[in-house]
């Protein structure tokens, strides 16, 4: 089963990290990538630029409206996603627990909806 792991960072925590903490955070991500690769479950890793670079679009009656910033103003910001192919939710949870954001912010685990006949990247 494929799961998307959505990483929700608390920006105030990230901003207040010391250089050493940032480095440790990065190393932890590398370690997670390593484990996921060894278990052959990693299908995709897509880190995102900060929410300040986001643009939100709404098209109504053929008219496009663009807004600066992310769709929802929340305390925690989507920082990136992974796609993991796991046996079941327990395996996905066990791996997600290795992601640094799970320790200082939150990660959300969502099963990917597989639609038959629709080409989906693996």
């Amino acid at each position: 089963m494929r799961y998307m792991i959505l990483i929700y960072n608390d920006p105030t925590i990230l901003d207040n990290m010391t250089q050493a903490e940032q480095e440790a955070d990065f190393q932890s991500y590398m370690a997670f990538n390593q484990v996921a690769a060894e278990k052959n479950v990693m299908r995709n890793a897509l880190p995102l630029h900060p929410a300040s670079t986001a643009t939100t679009l709404r098209v109504r009656d053929g008219k496009s409206n663009t807004f600066d910033g992310p769709f929802a103003e929340t305390k925690e910001i989507l920082g990136g996603v992974y796609v993991l192919d796991c046996k079941d939710l327990d395996e996905a949870l066990e791996l997600a627990a290795l992601i640094p954001a799970a320790h200082h912010s939150s990660v959300e685990i969502r099963p990917i909806l597989e639609i038959p006949g629709v080409e989906q990247s693996q």
């Binding site: 799961y3 796991c86 046996k87 079941d88 939710l89 327990d90 996905a92 099963p111 909806l113």
Partner: peptide, 14 residues
Amino acid sequence: RDAGIPYAIPSTDK
């Protein structure tokens, strides 16, 4: 069903 919650006895550590 959709989230793949396992139908199993959890591993010893869990």
